[in-house]
């Protein structure tokens, strides 16, 4: 991969990229992908949310995990920034706080891959026994 400086350089790399598009086709059905939303309001940005987002994008690619990483506005947990919301396919979203690259790595390895919950969850939604019974 040489130096990419102009659009012409980008065009040369395009052919190489076109062959590796299979993962993205799944984004037509986002429910089948892992969805990560990174809170990107002022408090998040100041605490390093950009690095967290870049880490997730890179690591999902390296570990070959189909995922969509997007930004969102303030989720209200400014005291715990950077925060992320992780939605595994078919599951309720879970919000994690105090994310750094080490924590993000742990979440990918344990929660995303194995469904194993890790420390740092911020309780968001709760169901009482009554509502759960109705469901």
């Amino acid at each position: 991969m040489g130096n990419v400086k102009t659009l012409a350089d980008l065009r040369k790399i395009k052919e190489d990229l076109q062959g590796k598009m299979s993962l993205r086709e799944k984004s037509d059905h986002p429910e089948s992908l892992v969805q990560i939303r990174v809170a990107m309001a002022t408090c998040g940005i100041a605490s390093g949310a950009k690095q967290v987002m870049e880490f997730f994008i890179d690591e999902f690619e390296k570990r070959n995990i189909p995922a969509v990483v997007t930004q969102t506005g303030c989720m209200g947990y400014c005291f715990a920034e950077p925060t992320i919301e992780v939605t595994l396919p078919g599951q309720n979203p879970v919000v994690f706080g105090y994310i750094d690259t080490r924590k993000a790595d742990e979440i990918i390895e344990k929660y995303v891959k194995n469904g194993e919950l890790v420390d740092g969850i911020i309780p968001v939604n709760y169901e009482t026994i009554e509502t759960k019974r109705e469901a």
Binding site: V4, K5, L7, L10, K14, L17, R24, I57, D58, E61
Partner: peptide, 23 residues
């Protein structure tokens, strides 16, 4: 230029960063 390749591909994001930075 990308002609169908999505800008959200991690490799594209890296390339765009490199391109903008170099310039």
């Amino acid at each position: 230029t990308l002609d169908g390749v999505s800008v959200s591909e991690p490799r594209v994001i890296r390339l765009l960063k490199e391109m903008i930075n170099e310039n």
